[in-house]
Computed example of a mutant assay.
Amino acid sequence: MTLRAAVLGHPIGHSKSPVLHRAAYSQLGAGLDYEAIDVTIDALPAFMAGVRADGRWRGLSVTMPLKGAMAAEVDEVRGVARQLGVINTVALETADATGNARARLIGYNTDVAGIVNALRYAGVAPKPSAAILGGGGTAAAAVAALKELGAPSATIFVRDTGRATEARAAAAAVGLELQVLPLAGAAAALAAADVVVSTLPPRAADPVAEELTRLQGVESGVLLDVAYDPWPSRIAAAWTAAGGKVVPGLEMLLYQAVEQVRLFTGLGGPVPAEVIDVMCDAVGVPRRVF
């Protein structure tokens, strides 16, 4: 029986997750097929009912706009996802290794680890001044990651200050002081931060990029842009031109996927180095050693 895993989202055609996961499962000889499936919020309950009924499923990667909605579809939430209320990973656990017993759906958030590892490699200073672009589910993970990195506070810039519910809840849960400000006119404040995490969809940060190109004499810090298609994004290009360091979103995607591979395959320990190597090669990310 070929086992199944997938990345869910809407739209989903741009996702690099299948490339990463397939490389890992091929190296492991896991016999696990991984695909990208377009699922809207409205269609999610019916899709998850199908997952429960099909004993071949072992895991789901969850991307926009499903990260908040998935919390209502799982049986248990573990780790930092319990604090955030935002799920990017669902692993299926069964009492019967053949998959015949009813599976329990367990929700996790591996985005936090992905952001932390990507920024640590970039050399983010201890207790950094921090900012976030966007206020959705990935922004909630960014809040938790910045707390783990030692940031005393963060400023979040959103198009609508009334729609940062997930990020606000995450900040309250992890104990990070958070200020919410409008996205318009944010460029100067962003350029002054030690670290910025952009969680906006592709091209949504283009107006900020335009503002950055008009700044003079600015030396920016580290920008992690989680949107990786197209690449380089306009904000990444503007950030580099302003003298800052850019961490591609593919690095975050890699590090969060490594933990998903461990969960989906039931590995008892860390993912082997040779598996991480082939995942890096699959998407052109250098192998990072901490």
Score class of each variant (00 low, 15 high):
Gly123Tyr: 13
Thr155Pro: 08
Ser153Val: 01
Gly134Trp: 10
Ala122Val: 10
Val116Asn: 04
Gly123Lys: 10
Glu148Thr: 15
Ala140Val: 05
Gly114Arg: 08
Gly123Val: 10
Val143His: 07
Lys147Phe: 04
Gly135Thr: 03
Asn117Phe: 02
Val116Trp: 02
Val124Lys: 13
Gly135Leu: 00
Ala144Gln: 02
Pro128Cys: 07
Gly136Trp: 00
Ser129Trp: 11
Tyr121Phe: 12
Gly114Ala: 07
Gly137Tyr: 00
Ala142Cys: 08
Val124Ala: 03
Asn117Gln: 13
Leu119Gly: 08
Glu148Ala: 14
Gly137Trp: 02
Thr155Gly: 05
Ala140Tyr: 02
Gly135Ala: 05
Gly137Lys: 00
Ser129Tyr: 07
Ala144Tyr: 03
Ala154Gly: 11
Ala122Met: 11
Ala131His: 13
Ala118Lys: 04
Lys127Gly: 12
Pro128His: 04
Asn117His: 14
Leu119Met: 11
Ile132Asp: 09
Gly114Asn: 09
Ala142His: 12
Val143Glu: 01
Gly123Asn: 11
Ala130Asp: 12
Gly134Asn: 06
Ala139Ser: 13
Ala118Ser: 15
Val116His: 10
Gly150Asn: 11
Tyr121Lys: 10
Pro152Gln: 10
Thr155Val: 14
Ser153Trp: 07
Ala142Trp: 08
Gly114His: 09
Ile115Arg: 05
Pro128Ala: 06
Lys127Pro: 00
Ala131Ile: 11
Ala141Met: 01
Tyr121His: 15
Ala140Met: 01
Ser153Thr: 10
Ala145Pro: 03
Gly137Arg: 01
Ala140Ile: 00
Ala130Ile: 05
Ser153Gln: 15
Pro152Leu: 04
Lys147Ile: 00
Gly135Arg: 09
Asn117Asp: 14
Ser153Pro: 05
Leu149Arg: 08
Pro126Ile: 08
Leu119His: 12
Leu149Phe: 08
Lys127Trp: 05
Pro128Trp: 13
Asn117Gly: 07
Arg120Cys: 12
Ile115Cys: 04
Ala144His: 00
Ala140Thr: 01
Pro126Trp: 13
Ala130Leu: 10
Gly114Gln: 08
Leu133Glu: 07
Ala154Tyr: 12
Leu133Ile: 14
Ala140Gln: 00
Arg120Asp: 11
Ala131Phe: 11
Ile115Pro: 03
Ala122Gln: 12
Lys127Leu: 05
Ala151Lys: 09
Leu149Asn: 03
Ala144Arg: 08
Ala125Ser: 15
